[in-house]
Amino acid sequence: MGPLEITGSAKLVLGLLTGILFGFILQKGQVTKYQKIVSFFRLTDLTVLKVLMGGIVAGMVGVYLMYDLGLVKLHIKPTVLGANILGGLIFGVGMLLLGF
């Protein structure tokens, strides 16, 4: 049990395929669009929030189910509130300065 053990170049190809799907979903979900990102920060269009929260919630439930079935390992990072909050704020400012 546990996650699959894929190694070497097969794992790299897997990463590329996962990335292609990731980019595909983000684009179709409108999350890649400047207009949508700015509108989220201005609270006039919450598409970005809904897509990302939807992804997080679905992923949380799904990954935990797989964990209970012994299919995956969890990767839990420490919570450092100060760094998490400050980092998030700086990230947000940067995103809007960028303009894309």
Binding site: L14, I25, G29, K50, V51, G54, A58
Partner: peptide, 27 residues
């Protein structure tokens, strides 16, 4: 042109599950 937010959200969740299982990685 665009998917509804819950299509995209659900698929992101499923993709993350796949990443955990196939590569022992999160997105």
């Amino acid at each position: 042109e665009e998917w509804s937010w819950w299509h995209a959200g659900l698929l992101l969740g499923l993709l993350n599950m796949a990443a955990f299982y196939t590569a022992d990685h999160y997105l």
